Measured scan of single mutants.
Amino acid sequence: DWREIAKLAEEALKKQQPVTVNGQTFNDPNEIKKLLETAQKAI
């Protein structure tokens, strides 16, 4: 669910920690931002 992904990505950016989505881990803040943008577009 994109809403859940957006929430996870936002928290990861705030806490500056990696986030795992669908078994894929994102460590890079730039990648997390991209993930968040993608999720927000999909909602």
Rank of each mutant, 00 (worst) to 15 (best):
Q16V: 11
E4Y: 04
Q40F: 01
P18S: 10
K14V: 14
E31Q: 11
Q16G: 15
V19F: 02
A39Y: 01
L8T: 07
L35P: 01
V19H: 01
T25L: 12
E37R: 03
K14G: 12
I43C: 06
A6H: 08
Q17D: 07
D1Q: 06
W2S: 06
E31F: 10
I5F: 01
R3Y: 15
N27D: 14
Q24G: 07
A39M: 06
D1P: 03
A9H: 01
A12L: 02
L36K: 02
N22M: 13
G23K: 05
K41A: 14
N30K: 13
L13S: 03
Q16F: 11
E10R: 05
F26Y: 14
Q17F: 13
E10I: 08
Q40W: 02
K34H: 12
Q40N: 14
A6E: 10
N30F: 14
D1K: 07
E11Q: 09
P29I: 11
A12M: 04
G23Q: 05
G23D: 09
D1L: 04
N27H: 11
A9P: 00
A12D: 02
E31I: 11
Q17W: 13
T38L: 15
I5C: 03
F26L: 13
K41N: 14
A6Q: 10
E37N: 07
I32L: 09
N22S: 09
T38V: 14
K33Y: 05
K15I: 10
T20P: 02
K7T: 11
L8E: 07
T38W: 07
Q40V: 13
P29T: 11
N22A: 10
L36F: 08
D28V: 00
E4N: 06
N22P: 02
N22T: 04
L8A: 14
E31C: 08
T25W: 10
I32C: 01
E11P: 00
L36C: 03
A6R: 08
Q24L: 14
V21Q: 02
A42E: 12
Q24A: 06
D1G: 10
K41T: 11
L13R: 03
E37I: 06
Q17E: 11
T25G: 05
V21H: 07
L35H: 02
K15M: 10
F26S: 04
T25A: 10
A9F: 10
E11M: 03
E10T: 09
D1S: 09
L13V: 05
N30L: 15
K33P: 01
T38F: 12
V21R: 02
Q16W: 08
P29K: 08
K15T: 14
V21S: 03
P18I: 08
V21P: 01
N22C: 12
Q40R: 15
G23E: 07
V21L: 10
A42M: 13
I43D: 06
I32E: 02
L13T: 04
I43S: 08
W2G: 04
D28K: 01
L36Y: 07
K7C: 08
A9Q: 01
E31D: 15
F26M: 12
F26T: 07
F26E: 06
K7V: 10
P18G: 12
V21F: 04
A9L: 15
R3C: 15
I32K: 03
R3S: 15
E10F: 05
W2T: 05
Q24Y: 06
T20A: 07
A42P: 04
G23C: 06
G23H: 07
I32V: 09
K15F: 08
I5H: 01
P29D: 08
E10Y: 06
A39Q: 03
A9D: 01
A12I: 01
Q24H: 14
E4D: 12
K41Y: 00
T25N: 09
K7D: 10
L35I: 11
E10W: 04
L36A: 05
P29A: 13
K34G: 07
A42H: 15
A42R: 13
W2D: 05
P29L: 14
A12W: 00
E31R: 02
N22W: 05
L13Y: 02
K41M: 08
L13D: 03
D28R: 00
E10P: 00
L36M: 09
A42N: 13
K7N: 10
N27C: 04
E37F: 00
I32G: 01
Q17L: 13
L36V: 06
E31A: 11
L13K: 03
V21Y: 02
Q24V: 15
P29N: 08
V19D: 02
T20V: 13
D28W: 05
A42I: 12
L8Y: 03
V21T: 06
I43K: 05
Q24D: 09
N27W: 15
K34E: 13
